[in-house]
Nucleic acid binder design. Structure first.
Length: 372
RNA sequence: AUUCCCGACAAGC
């Protein structure tokens, strides 16, 4: 069984889930490890429903199975579900506590995270890493650094987290020195350094990282692709996109939104048609292509065809009507919005104002709940 | 390296 399990997990590690499943189906006998090996990728890919479904089908469950389920929720920041599983599980380990802690980190809930950290029976590097991250996400760089200095050990994740935090705050020098100090550099570390460069507008340095990187993966490709795309190097971005062996949803949406933002509607459209699956970001990207150029008919068709809407898609459509002077349509759409944030009010109001509907604008202004 | 915890990627907000 152990050999079969090893083969399975090797496939799963490299993303060949279909192969892993084939092995699972073919093996003469299966133990809990086999089942858990099948379960884990669901959590790692953020497929909560898939994880839950398989979890419910498990013939037996051990601590690992429960932990996998716990992290499936935790990674998505579902606090209530995470807590529910945490309370439901028959026993828990340090891993379980860390997963719970990570859920609060996802939610940027510093107070709760500190509370959990204080009550958990023991800590390891992963627990400390969560704390330094949560400070970093709250822009408490000093606290983050103090945590880093105070923790008993560091691993690659600690160094990489610190590197990214500096990068997010524009401190490239410290990012670079983290990268230099790391005893071991893996794919994630390299990518984090690359991203620190792209997010701070250092395309050249990013490209050098990319070229020097001893690993290859879709993630760093996406990062550099997005950097080129955003800065208007569309040909270069497209060439990179075409050369990539693998595309994930992030690759598609980086490319699509670049076309849309820069007004290349036809390219947006053909890319959109080529997409193997479309998520909310894809639809929004396509919508943005039309609204940005005032193609109201196409925009509306796209909007109506969307399987789901976000606040952003509503506002985008609303803005297109308002900018085009179609205040009636704008108002109708506005009334249908299930949720109206201040941006939506603002967009509609500006639409009235810019098109000379002073009286309507005034009436609208008076009915705004939050008039700042 | 038989399965579980922490760090990297797109876009909107």
């Amino acid at each position: 069984v152990v050999s079969w399990n090893s083969i399975m997990s090797a496939f799963a590690r490299h993303g060949h889930l279909d192969e892993a499943e084939r092995v699972f189906n073919e093996m003469p006998e299966r133990d809990l490890v086999s089942w858990n090996t099948m379960l884990a990728p669901y959590a790692q890919n953020g497929n909560i429903t898939g994880a839950k479904k398989l979890f419910d089908e498990l013939p037996m469950r051990d601590l690992v199975s429960w932990n996998v389920m716990l992290t499936a929720y935790s990674q998505d920041g579902h606090i209530s579900k995470t807590l529910w599983v945490f309370k439901e599980m028959p026993e828990m380990s340090l891993v379980s506590w860390n997963a719970l802690l990570a859920a609060y980190t996802q939610n940027a809930d510093l107070e709760k995270a500190k509370e959990i950290f204080a009550v958990m029976p023991e800590h390891n590097v992963a627990s400390w890493n969560s704390i330094l991250l949560i400070y970093g996400n709250a822009c408490e760089i000093k606290q983050s650094r103090e945590t880093f200095d105070a923790m008993p050990q560091h691993n690659v994740a600690s160094w990489t987290a610190m590197l990214s935090i500096y990068g997010q705050n524009g401190d490239l020098e410290n990012s670079k020195s983290c990268f230099g100090c790391m005893p071991e550099k893996d794919l994630v570390a390299w990518t984090a350094m690359l991203v620190a460069f792209t997010h701070n507008g250092h395309l050249q340095d990013a490209q050098e990282m990319f070229d020097a990187m001893p690993f290859q993966s879709v993630v760093p490709c996406n990062a550099i692709l997005a950097a080129y795309a955003q800065s208007g190097h569309l040909m270069r971005a497209k060439a990179l996109f075409d050369s990539m062996a693998l595309h994930n949803p992030a690759s598609w949406s980086a490319m699509l939104s670049a076309y849309s933002i820069h007004g290349h509607i036809d390219d947006s459209k053909s890319l959109f048609m080529d997409m193997p699956q479309r998520n909310l970001a894809s639809w929004s990207g396509m919508l943005q292509a039309y609204t940005g150029k005032g193609h109201l008919e196409d925009a509306k068709c796209t909007f109506d065809a969307m399987p789901q809407h976000s606040l952003g898609s509503w506002t985008s459509m609303l803005g297109a009507y308002a900018q085009g002077g179609y205040v009636l349509e704008a108002k109708q759409l506005f009334d249908k919005m299930p949720l109206k944030d201040s941006l939506a009010w603002h967009v509609l109001l500006s639409g009235y104002a810019q098109n000379g509907h002073v009286e309507l604008a005034r009436q609208m202004f008076d009915s705004i709940p939050d008039q700042n």
